[in-house]
């Protein structure tokens, strides 16, 4: 818990981090995780997203899903800005291990080391992982 909780109009503002660890398809975690992120925008909290392990694949450009008969939901990540969700953190080692770089991603992100990501997590009030 951070000690600097803000109180605005009687409501508490907490630091929420959603940690995305799974590939976008193959399991439903990424899709349902994104649904929570969108709902959280309605609560006026301090929201950030972390992408680690196969979670970095969620942000890769040019996803084509016709062949697996699933909806390509990657455009939603571009819409997050419109919900004032702009803190997207990506683990550098996870990117590099998968042959990816920041240029392969469909949104602006902050790429950081595992240690920096750990510091970021330690600052949160609520961490929800998918």
């Amino acid at each position: 818990m951070s000690d600097d909780m803000d109180f605005e109009e009687g409501g508490t503002i907490k630091k929420f981090m959603f940690v995305n660890r799974k590939a976008p398809y193959g399991t439903i975690y990424a899709l349902e995780g994104l649904e929570v992120v969108l709902i959280s925008a309605a609560f006026d909290q301090d929201v950030s997203l972390a992408f680690v392990d196969d979670g970095v694949f969620q942000l890769v450009k040019g996803q084509k899903t016709d062949g697996i008969e699933m909806k390509n939901f990657s455009p939603t990540y571009r819409a997050l800005e419109g919900y004032d969700i702009e803190k997207l953190y990506v683990d550098r080692e996870s990117l590099e291990a998968r042959g990816l770089s920041e240029d392969d991603l469909l949104v602006d992100v902050q790429v950081m080391s595992a240690a920096e990501m750990g510091d970021m997590m330690a600052q949160q009030d609520v961490v929800i992982s998918f």
């Binding site: 508490t12 929420f16 609560f43 909290q45 961490v127 929800i128």
Partner: peptide, 21 residues
């Protein structure tokens, strides 16, 4: 109920603990 109940639980509790894979 809706997903808002999860976010609300995060706001109102001292700790939200996730049990998953």
């Amino acid at each position: 109920s809706g997903l808002g109940q999860l976010v609300e639980a995060g706001i109102q509790s001292d700790r939200l603990v996730v049990f998953g894979d």
